[in-house]
Simulated assay, not measured.
Amino acid sequence: MSRDSQTAEIALANTIDKNTMPTGPLFHVTPERNLASILSDGLAPQIGPRSGDLGEPAPRIFFFTTLEAVETALTNWLGEAFEDEPGALVVLSVDPSGLTFYSEADYEVFTHEPILAENITLGLGLDQEVET
């Protein structure tokens, strides 16, 4: 994707107002098999299998803004998307400090910036209770 088309795509999304920028942790769901790599190298924006299926035009990293949103997604559309994935899922907790986020839905935000490993911790595994 060219830089101009990525810039245009970003402009279509709603940049989060500085007054409503996430201040607490954000949550990212991933297969457990990715955990070691993420905790070592961080998260890099990409167009993964689910993003490709949805026709997303630019590499992004998506986050839920609350654990309640994680639970809702996993018991609905995101759980269905991961049905064919082998192994468990994990929820990562991410410190959003210093990053720019965009939102096209109330329950999630995304960034085009890489997330350093030191800003990521294991939130919980899918077999653990999600408290809302």
Rank of each mutant, 00 (worst) to 15 (best):
T75P: 11
A8S: 08
E68T: 07
Y102G: 11
A88D: 14
G42V: 02
L99V: 13
F63A: 02
I61A: 08
L122S: 09
E56M: 00
L43H: 06
S103Q: 13
A13R: 06
V90E: 13
V109L: 04
L74T: 03
V130Y: 04
F101M: 07
N76C: 05
T23M: 07
P114T: 05
T66S: 13
R50Y: 10
E71F: 03
L126H: 03
Y107F: 12
Y107G: 09
R3I: 01
R50Q: 11
L74N: 04
L99N: 15
V109C: 08
T20G: 03
L39F: 01
I16H: 06
F27N: 07
S5Y: 00
P31I: 00
L116Y: 13
W77I: 05
V130N: 02
V29W: 02
V29P: 00
V130C: 05
P31D: 03
L122T: 11
T65W: 04
E108T: 05
A8R: 06
T30P: 13
L26Q: 03
S40M: 10
P49R: 10
P59Y: 00
G42Q: 04
V91K: 06
D127Q: 09
P114W: 12
M21K: 07
E71M: 07
I10S: 01
A11W: 07
N76P: 04
H112I: 06
Q46C: 14
L99W: 15
A36L: 13
N19I: 04
D17V: 13
F82W: 14
A36N: 13
L78S: 12
T65Q: 13
D106M: 05
G87Q: 06
P96K: 13
M1V: 00
G125R: 10
L26A: 04
Y107L: 05
